[in-house]
Design a binder for these strands. Structure first.
Lengths: 235, 235
DNA sequence: AAGTGGTCTAGACCACGCG
DNA sequence: GCGTGGTCTAGACCACTTC
């Protein structure tokens, strides 16, 4: 069986979700509909849908149907929650905002982009109770998220905004410690040379790069936590 | 169906693995044997075994049978691979080694331990090509891993040794940046006050704490990377 | 009440790979 | 070759939840 039929059915729906045709909350076909469409037994489509549940792409509710799942919160992505949720009294300010054709450096950060692709570059300061808490330096691929070009990110910071809209399949985080340079120290209200936690996060939708963010926290004011368990089981 | 039968079957085998009755590489009953034992259809036990594959506890090979999976490498646990694999020319030295009744501080680090439980405390320096690369400060619960009491950790460093022997189900990592104090700076051959990456890792087997490690790297010589993808699918 | 998913059965055929 | 797992079928009964 080179191509299990449940795999084909799963991938078809997966494609609809990852391509954005089906958005979070949208209904996906019921088992009966899929049985009729593909001419297979119900257990076969049930397996396809169960696998999508295990992948976190779909949630199923009896009587209601199956729906595209909301993307996992940044909280679950890593222990770097939505800034708005962890930082008490969170506020943010967009310091720079530019749309440009991706430079070589942009392509190095974001990954393989087509020549001439446009990106949105953002510099955001996050405050907690009036005190600077983190700097966020972010690139967004406008190929992947064209609607970001018209967004001001005044209401929701870019991380939150993106996670609400763009399904991702792969994420990479690189975390290191670095001494604050004078510019960073000034923006974060700390001594130059003091330790900072620097996280670079990149996310993809399939093979397509979505966004790359470098977030810098004063070392003594933040901690990243990652929890893992062996294997989420199916629903 | 308050208790699906495939769940009961899965949990029975899960228990054998997590309790250590079945060790990595051991054979688990074949589908036929489980069918006979539980009096269910083959698809039902197949589902139980598939779920164990998804959880990473079991691997299945046609004709050969199903086997307890090798625990994921530290590499996969987080991007903090086995020191021996990433650090070129790795060597390690056990600087301190003590068995003691868990102190209050030990219990705080390791989590809920019975009163009077004994722990193994280790201080290990990791070198790369003769240069100090990281310090490891570790506690091991001797309730969870009694055989650690008689181990010298000369051949394999404790992280490697533990991962080869103890199946874990939960892991937590906390990562922060800190300035090196004078003692740490001296041991790692760096300037006092320079940024360090500090990772605290704790692992559990079920509810039982297994080990807690605090690993400190010079900030400019190491980076932690975490890769996640949405949902491993079943095998 | 009716539609949906969750589970289960008792078969079946096939692919793979160890012996 | 033959035991194992991988997939699939065409039914079935039940639980849950919305309608």
């Amino acid at each position: 069986m080179p191509r299990p039929r449940h795999t084909a059915i799963r991938e078809q729906i997966e494609g609809l979700i990852l391509s954005g045709v089906l958005k979070p909350g949208d209904r996906v076909p019921s088992e009966q509909e899929l049985v009729a469409e593909h001419g297979v037994a119900r257990m076969t489509v049930s397996r396809a849908l169960s696998d999508l549940v295990a992948a976190g792409l779909v949630v199923r509710r009896r009587k209601a149907g199956s729906f595209v799942a909301a993307p996992p919160s940044e909280e679950k992505l890593l222990g770097v929650p939505d800034m708005r949720e962890t930082l008490p009294g969170h506020a943010h300010a967009v310091l720079k905002r530019a749309v440009r054709v991706a430079s070589g450096a942009d392509r190095a950060r974001l990954g393989a982009l087509p020549k001439g692709a446009r990106v949105l570059a953002l510099l955001v300061r996050h405050d907690s109770q009036g005190v600077p808490a983190a700097m966020e330096d972010r690139l967004v691929s406008l190929d992947a998220v064209p609607e970001a070009a018209g967004e001001s990110f005044v209401e929701a910071p870019p991380g939150t905004w993106l996670l609400e809209r763009v399904p991702w399949t792969e994420a990479e985080h690189r975390i290191r410690a670095a001494a604050a340079d004078t510019g960073m120290a000034a923006m974060l209200g700390m001594a130059a040379g003091a330790p900072c936690l620097v996280m670079e996060r990149r996310t993809w939708r399939g093979d397509q790069p979505v966004t790359a963010a470098r977030i810098t926290w004063p070392g003594d004011r933040h901690e990243v936590t990652v929890r893992s368990s062996r294997g989420p089981l199916r629903g």
